[in-house]
Nucleic acid binder design. Structure first.
Lengths: 213, 213
DNA sequence: GTCTATACCGTGATAGAC
DNA sequence: GTCTATCACGGTATAGAC
């Protein structure tokens, strides 16, 4: 017997391959081969290729959103009634992602790279991101609006856009920063990425959304 | 006679389609069809599909780098001998991109979306970005190092990473911010994007790279 | 219900004839 | 430069084994 079901192995392989090469860059035969199953099995479990893609994308989304929302609720409670700072909110948005890197499961790493691919794709971005993540993002924007009471909605959304871009480029793990920095930084080092991203992004929000500095 | 050569029309069509659907999401037949030429002509001019992809990616890179370097030199001269501020350097990095949006040529818009796709792709990112853009980025990092004399190299590179992510997500024009903001922001509005990105990013650099705030 | 073997048929990149 | 042929490979359906 196999430790994980064949259905899960198909999802795992599809996740890894889609993340690396994109939807069209992967064949069902490659996925099946890597999963050690017959080509037709993907079709049996998921139907068309696009349905498998959606299944992969949706599989971990709820878990991810839950852990981030939980982190937000935690800082909201601990900071009541004043409400959390910008830094605390950004931290709650990012650190749960770091935890996914620590345990041995490489699936989370592939999943985040897949999000990078989707988020930055003209075609897939609009089709797939909003449905799964906008509710959660609105929770965080609401919290930021409280922390930055003079901010306009437009400012908040553009600032979030900057955060989203910085974050998803980190997900992609392209190793470009390794080359650029001549090895001083490594794109696999999520902790270093977030350690720099949290103050960077928080300062950006403050500058744009707090008048009169 | 056609206004532009068939060779250029192939490049234009390939640029638009690769930007929208990625390398594997586009067929040579689609490219040829949109360009109004025979399928085999792409092969005649560029050889293999991957060579066409590279030709598209390289076509506008030099021009882009030149206009950004020129903008950097300009602020460096006007700010001599003190050297330009972080804000001025970021401005020189971004504003030339905005200009490309103003003239009617949609090719530049497609090209930037293609950069977004490449930069955030685990597979293509490491293969294509460094070769064309790292020299220019090092010029800007050198300028930032002067403006932020206490910064470590690692800090500078991670901050640039955040800038690169925010910038390329903007390039992708996924319209996600349109949905998220309920129409208050539009991803086609590069000027608004840069107006928010410049202070956001400059503040981020300062927070991370200037001690004791 | 789960899974495999296989066949189908359209479409892809590419090369060679013209 | 253009047209056409090639031939491998893609997604998908189906029949039936376990």
């Amino acid at each position: 017997m196999t430790a994980t079901s064949k259905r899960d192995r198909i999802l795992d392989s599809a996740e890894a391959l889609f993340a690396e090469r994109g939807y069209d860059g992967v064949t069902l035969r490659q996925i099946a081969s890597q999963a050690g199953v017959d080509v037709a099995l993907a079709n049996y479990h998921f139907g068309k290729k696009i349905a498998l893609f959606n299944a992969v994308f949706e599989r971990r989304a709820a878990l991810l959103n839950e852990s981030r929302l939980e982190a937000l609720r935690r800082v909201q409670e601990s900071a009541a009634p004043a409400g959390p700072t910008v830094e605390q909110i950004i931290e709650a948005f990012l650190r749960p992602l770091e935890l996914t890197q620590e345990n041995a499961d490489p699936g989370w790493r592939h999943y985040l790279a897949l999000i990078a691919y989707v988020n930055n794709s003209t075609y897939w971005g609009k089709r797939m991101m909003s449905k799964l993540f906008d509710d959660l993002v609105h929770e965080f924007i609401d919290a930021l609006r409280q922390a930055l009471p003079q901010a306009s909605d437009r400012d908040l959304y553009w600032c979030y856009h900057n955060l989203s871009g910085a974050l998803t480029l980190t997900f992609a793990q392209t190793e470009r920063i390794d080359t650029l920095s001549n090895g001083q930084c490594r794109s696999s080092d999520f902790q270093a990425a977030y350690d720099h991203m949290i103050p960077f992004v928080a300062a950006g929000f403050r500058r744009v959304c707090e008048p009169g500095e």
